[in-house]
């Protein structure tokens, strides 16, 4: 019954919504406040690879140019003007530089900002401070099963230290490393908790070291797991 009522409610809501108005509002919103994130822009900067069947990088830049400059794009909801859409491009620029982009496109991206690679101290903050911090998330998830998950300060420091170390030793993937480390660290707990009757669990430094030791010791393995 609850399920059926939900379906009825959704159906009734659809009847009450004026789709034409939705589309008008949506077109205006995309035009005036839309944000396009163009990742890996560095990969289309610079001379095209001499071999390989890839479409030339410069060609892609030329294709992007009108969209960034402001044009009208035909969509199934009508025309969308791109003049006021905000474009945020991003890239590591290890090999190429922003100045390797074609001048016209460079001109359309007048603001350049460098982001720093994150320190161990920042990892500690990332683990704990943001509203959606990983530790906040895991605590909330286990709370749904009536389990209080706690981390000692030195455990958090150890997680951050391990993340920085693995980043330095294998590939540097920044704060993403925290995700892989945390899921490895909590794997057992997440598996066992529903069938145990513990009400509270504390992760301390020793627990972090023990759990991650085997993975860290094996350099090759940690390349894949952590």
């Amino acid at each position: 019954m609850a399920e059926a009522l939900k379906i009825f409610t959704q159906q009734e809501a659809q009847k009450l919504i004026d789709m034409e108005e939705v589309i008008r509002t949506a077109v205006a919103r995309a035009q005036n406040s839309g944000i396009v994130f163009l990742d890996e822009i560095d990969k289309i900067a610079g001379a095209s690879s001499k071999h390989g069947p890839d479409v030339s990088r410069e060609g892609v830049q030329r294709d992007l140019l009108p969209v960034v400059e402001g044009t009208s794009v035909v969509t199934k909801y009508g025309m969308v003007k791109t003049d006021h859409i905000l474009f945020v491009a991003s890239g590591a620029f290890h090999v190429s530089k922003p100045s390797d982009l074609i001048p016209e496109l460079q001109g359309r991206f007048p603001i350049r900002v460098e982001l720093n690679s994150l320190s161990e101290q920042e990892f500690i903050q990332i683990l704990t401070e943001p509203k959606n911090a990983l530790i906040v998330q895991y605590k909330a998830m286990l709370e749904t099963e009536g389990v209080e998950l706690k981390f000692t300060d030195d455990a958090i420091a150890e997680i951050a230290r391990t993340a920085a170390m693995v980043n330095a030793r294998s590939e540097n993937i920044g704060a993403r490393r925290l995700h892989t480390i945390m899921s490895n660290l909590l794997e057992e707990i997440l598996f066992e908790v529903p069938e145990s009757d513990v009400k509270s669990l504390t992760v301390d430094k020793k627990k972090v070291q023990e759990t991650l030791a085997s993975v860290i010791e094996d350099e090759d393995l940690s390349r894949y797991i952590l």
């Binding site: 991003s90 991206f109 460098e114 982001l115 720093n116």
Partner: peptide, 24 residues
């Protein structure tokens, strides 16, 4: 007036996407 499009330069996993997504 040229629109204020931005290039965020930095290695992977330092918050480039996250900043933009949050902004949105």
């Amino acid at each position: 007036i040229i629109p204020n499009n931005i290039i965020l330069i930095g290695p992977t996993g330092v918050g480039k996407t996250e900043i933009s997504r949050r902004l949105a």
